[in-house]
């Protein structure tokens, strides 16, 4: 069982291990600075499938099977499969679960799904309900564009605050035994709405949620930002990152400028790749944390990281009806002994 720290943070008594991860990326992500840290890079955004939705499912399944194969675990041995994505009715996750044939719990936290999955997996493992839990998430630039914005071939100007949805998928296998980085605490966030209505500026909509969760995490644990080697938010982008730093300083009174970065700024070369404010999408944090940071932790270059994955909980309908964009952030601290 876990110990509750403060209001929203939990500390598992036996911190679960992330024993394996699997990451697959699209061709555009494969040109970015983190390309060597992904298990597979596709050469075609369709991944040999007929539609972008099928391609996303194929990527998610590939990430899951890769993750399991690395530690020689078959899907039959896994107790729960937790997954979610950005598409309506989380179809990538559902169709992928059909292939994996593992008892499935669908989750949705928009782009915060990676941290939500890790937190829930930690609860299931530490609570004694499971020995092995597979958590995965995916996003695809083209399937997200056509659902949230315009047809992919439609010619429009993009605002400087617009972000580029990452194509790819990441999976993590959480276990009660083994070796690897451990999930030591997690903070479940509350939904925050600061009145931002522009879906082309999601970083600004999500930054207050990220700040609120970080402030709560540090208050609950009694730690400061300096406790971690690196703090990463999911996909705030260039302007969202600045807003998060400002909000953390004014609300929590701590300085993030030293060891804080945003996954949305790490995955692409923002100078050379035309992505405007940075990356977004579930795969943004999944690829950076399960791919890049996980390997850095295994190599011993990073000991303690805090993942604060952020999600915008709007839909096309809510935006068109004039509602502002509610956002959420979950924090998961991952430590290597």
């Amino acid at each position: 069982m876990a110990t509750k720290l403060g209001k929203q943070t939990y500390q598992p008594d036996n911190p679960p291990f992330i024993i394996s991860t699997g990451t697959v990326a699209g061709p555009f992500e494969g040109q970015g600075p983190l390309k060597d840290y992904f298990d597979h890079v596709y050469t075609d955004t369709l991944a040999g499938e007929r539609s972008f939705e099928n391609a996303e499912k194929e990527m998610m399944a590939n990430a899951c099977f890769t993750c399991l194969q690395k530690v020689n675990v078959t899907p039959q041995e896994v107790d729960f499969y937790l997954a979610g994505d950005l598409l309506n009715q989380i179809i990538s996750a559902g169709f992928c679960a059909l292939e994996l044939n593992i008892p499935f719990l669908g989750i949705y936290g928009a782009c915060s799904t990676s941290a939500e999955g890790l937190a829930l997996a930690a609860m299931l493992v530490d609570g004694g309900f499971a020995k092995l839990v597979l958590a995965s998430t995916s996003s695809h630039n083209s399937s997200a564009e056509r659902q949230y914005r315009y047809p992919t071939e439609y010619g429009v100007h993009r605002k400087p605050t617009a972000q580029w949805t990452v194509t790819g998928a990441g999976a993590a296998l959480v276990a009660g035994y083994g070796a690897g980085p451990r999930i030591t605490t997690f903070t479940v966030g509350k939904v925050v709405d600061q009145g931002i209505k522009d879906p082309m500026n999601l970083g600004a909509a999500m930054a207050p949620a990220a700040a609120a969760t970080m402030v709560q995490h540090f208050a609950d644990t009694g730690r400061g930002p300096e406790y971690y080697d690196l703090i990463v938010t999911g996909d705030l982008g260039k302007f969202g990152r600045e807003l998060a730093v400002i909000t953390c300083a004014s609300k929590g009174g701590f300085d993030l400028s030293k060891n804080y970065n945003d996954c949305g700024l790490m995955i692409y070369d923002t100078e050379k790749q035309d992505v405007h404010a940075g990356a977004s999408g579930c795969a943004s944090s999944a690829l950076v944390v399960y791919g890049y940071l996980y390997r850095k932790m295994l190599a011993g270059e990073l000991k303690k990281i805090l993942l604060v994955a952020t999600g915008a909980l709007h839909s096309v309908t809510s935006f068109q009806q004039g509602a502002s964009i509610p956002a959420i952030a979950h924090a998961v601290s991952i430590e290597m002994e």
């Binding site: 605050t161 600061q194 009145g195 931002i196 500026n201 600004a204 302007f239 807003l243 909000t247």
Partner: peptide, 9 residues
């Protein structure tokens, strides 16, 4: 907050 955003962006 919206004022802060419009200043920064």
């Amino acid at each position: 907050y919206t004022e802060l955003v419009s200043e920064l962006v």
